[in-house]
Amino acid sequence: MSTPAEHPEVLPEEHPVAPYIRTDRMPHIWCPTCGIGTVVKCFATALAESGLDLNKVSVVSGIGCTGRVAGYMKLDGFHTTHGRAIPFATGLKLGRPELLVTVFSGDGDLVGIGGNHFIHAARRNMDLLVILVNNFIYGMTGGQNAATTPLTAKTSTMPYGNFERAFNLPQLAASCGATYVARWTCLHIRRLTKAFGEALKRRGFRFIEVITPCATLYARLNKLGSGLDLMRFYHDNAEIRHGADTREVGIAFQDRIVCGKFVDEEQPSFLEMMHEHYRKTLGSKYVPTPPEGGWLHE
């Protein structure tokens, strides 16, 4: 039967994801059984299926494990400072409104240190697609407690178990005004890909939370086995409830994970509201920033 040695002819360029990732940077830094790569694959597939001009798609990341996504995707990619992916992306979008700007970062980055930016971008309905990879822990720094760590879960800074309450992210996003809110695990590859595809076509603040396994820290510190064991856990405990009341989708330690599309509504985005308001108040005197960017020279 076939063994690895029989496949030396398979080239990285043949992999269907090759046009969307920086193959010269593979293998990536993520641990064995980490799920971030799967989320990237799903996003790349959604991009491929979207028919979008990828030259106009930017991906912005903050710091942390998921923060590396911006450097692995073959798009205009910005690996910024810790927690500032959303404001950086805001500048990018407003500087060149024709861009489709995606924020791809982790829970610690986007709702820990970057929480203030998160709620305000949602409030403004800023035209950003925010993909938050939630592994319940600070991975890159060694397993410290996160704003998403479920009660009683052990982390390296809560060695006796976490006693802080965790964010319920879909509720947070929805209550701040996000117009598309969904949650999937990285086991839900088809549904996640579909959600990415849907969100890519919407405007305004779109938020997709993806639960992923962190084997090296979250699973190890909590004696949950490998990332594969966590994937099995998702299989058995994920519950799909589209349109669920986001107040009821909080995640308790090793408890059910409610997945689905919770919010999907058309609301004018920041840019639409700004244009409409200025047109109304300033009339023909209003000069919007051109789609290709602020005043360029020559």
């Binding site: 043949e14 269907p16 593979m26 790569g37 799967t38 694959k41 086991l187 590859i189």
Partner: peptide, 14 residues
């Protein structure tokens, strides 16, 4: 079905 390709976190199979 390309499920292996989709779920592989390391872009290592298709």
């Amino acid at each position: 079905c390309n499920l292996c390709e989709m779920i592989c976190p390391d872009f290592a199979i298709f």
